[in-house]
Structure formats: C-alpha cells, structure tokens
Design a protein around this nucleic acid. Sequence first.
DNA 1: TATTTGATTCTT
DNA 2: AGAATCAAATAT
Length: 184
Amino acid sequence: MVLTRPYFLRPTVMVARSLIGKYLVRHNGRGTLAGKIIEVEAYVGTSDKACHAAKGRTARTDVMFGPPGVAYVYLIYGMYHCLNVVTEREGFPAAVLIRAVEVDGEIIDGPGRLCRAFDIDRSLNRLDLTAKQCLWFEDRGVCVSRSQINRLPRIGVDYAGEWAHKPWRFRLRTDEKDVVCRED
DNA sequence: TATTTGATTCTT
DNA sequence: AGAATCAAATAT
C-alpha cells in the first residue's frame, strides 16, 4: 500500500523511525526498482542548525516549507544527489533524508549512491511522492520493532554545533536475526 | 563579484 | 588524507 499524505503529516522524528522497513519504489523507462529502507535521518525546522531550512526560506529550501509527502532533492559536493521527503504541516520546514536501502539482499549504503542506483536527480525535486507517479513509498507489511532500530547522531553535520549530536539517524540493525515482531 | 562550504564518495 | 566538482551561502 502506498504511503499517503497524512503519513508524512506527523512529527518528523516519528516519520523517520517509521520509514525503516518501508519500501522506496522507483518507476522509470527501465522498469521498476524497489528497496527496503534501512537508514534515514530527520531534519527538523529552522532552529535545527543542521537543517538546510535553518538559513530561512530560499529558492532551495522553499520546498521544505510546502506540504508533506513531497520530494526534496538537492545536489551535494557537486556530484551527488540526496533524496528527502518533506514532513509536517505546510509552513513548518522539515524532511527525512533517505540514507540507505536494501535491494534483493544487497545494501545500497549512502544517499549519493542510493540516488545513483535509483536514477534520482533534481528533475524529481518537488515531485508528489504520494501520487504514485515515478517515485513513491510503500508499506509491504514488514514489521520493525523499536529494538531493531539503532538511534545514532547524524552524519556530516559537525558544523551544526549542539544540533550535530542529536540522535536523529535511524538504522535497521542487521546483526540480530529472528527478532520477534511486536508493536510498541 | 569573489570566496567558501557542504545532509558525499572514491582514490591515494 | 585528499580529490572531484558545483550550487548556494557568505564575504567583499
């Protein structure tokens, strides 16, 4: 089932954690590719110094101020793209960065490599990810309990001072098998 | 208008 | 440890 707008209209950290185990699905001229999400990061509001929106509403960050469930794709270090999905209400800038997925048992680690594998670039910026066009999220019934998720500091945000330490990176544990499925 | 930097990755 | 490579932010 495709994740809809209300799913993303929630606190960003909650959306980030719940995206672990969901699927990212890409449909393009070469067919359809789906990957289980295993790592994400939350970026929350103008007070979060690591969030691009901390600089205010600019041409670049404008999309984060818009409605949730929309793609925010940007170019980093001149050569790699990063995929985010906008969260929370319109007017509150926040998003979740998709850092790693698993496709057919193979882990695609890192936002730049992920975007390369999924053929994602800035032409997909502002795409509605709830409209099932050429990129969307699916819940395929995979149950991930809180004990299977590691909370870690975000990567590459040392410049953000105190905000750099916030444990807003979520990664699926791969060292532990046969974890009982349970809601919490 | 010029310089610096960065939500990265690959090579040395 | 450093290069690749460029848009956006910041300094001048």
